[in-house]
Amino acid sequence: MRIKTLVAAMAAVASLAPIAAQAQSSGENPWMVRVRAVYVDWQNGQSNGSSTAAGVQTNNINAKNQWLPEFDVSYFFTKNIAAELVLSYPQPVNINSNLTSGPTGTINALPPSLLAQYHFTDFGAFKPYVGVGINYTIFGNRNNFSIGGTGSALTVSQNSVGFVGQIGADYMFDKNWGMNVDLKYATMNTSVTGQNVASGQDLGKLTLNPLMPAIGVTYKF
């Protein structure tokens, strides 16, 4: 199902190729890049349910908020319609639990997103936009946390596919350089499984669903 979702998204972008050819023929360069600093506000990532393992309550696991670097590439099919690929490198996500005094452990998350955008161009140098697309998160280092002192080792699922929505704006200082502000919300979750408690026992979902305000620099070329 996840593979079908990704294929459908790529097919939708490919269907815009004739429009892209028309935009290129107008002589305007269709590429834009941005570098942003993003604050990732995990939305109270609670593991669903009230499962217990070896007497340990597992429904208060959450992820620690953090600043991350972000790089994205946009391609304008027309002056209003664009596709944006949001990239980063694998980021450590510190997992905390009410059962331990310090971090329970750390997993890595690589969360590229692909969005279709509409840019409003009737406000001079101020260019707001909205976007919608999919987020595909790959989790690494998945076995690197546990419920401290109990021998209850945990792992998480390998990936997550979810929705991402976006609003933002560029303020262009000239035809190439500008400042960007951006806000994205993504649905992101992963199953938490107890490895050394009951074989393969599903302890619920670590629901991350980050809200991601950002500020950065725009370069159009």
Rank of each mutant, 00 (worst) to 15 (best):
N180V: 09
S25R: 12
E28K: 12
Q24W: 10
S146Y: 00
V192E: 09
M179R: 05
Q158R: 14
P210R: 01
S26N: 10
N48P: 01
I107R: 02
G27Q: 10
L183E: 02
N176S: 11
K79Q: 14
V132E: 07
G55D: 00
T137G: 08
P111A: 13
G162N: 06
N94C: 04
Y219P: 09
D41K: 08
S101R: 12
N48W: 00
V164G: 06
G216E: 02
V40Q: 03
A214D: 04
P92L: 09
G204E: 07
T5W: 12
M1R: 05
N180S: 13
N209S: 14
A23G: 14
N209P: 11
S191C: 03
H119L: 05
L85R: 09
D182H: 05
N59G: 08
L206S: 01
P92A: 10
S199H: 06
G49V: 01
D41M: 12
F173S: 06
T137D: 08
M10K: 14
A214R: 01
L154Q: 03
S74A: 15
S101T: 12
K79T: 11
W42Y: 12
A37R: 09
N143G: 14
A54D: 01
G151Q: 07
Q195S: 11
N196A: 09
G162P: 03
T155N: 12
S26D: 09
M1C: 12
G149N: 01
V38G: 03
V38K: 01
S152K: 00
A116D: 03
A53P: 00
N62R: 10
V33C: 09
K127H: 08
Q117S: 05
L87E: 09
V132G: 10
K184G: 06
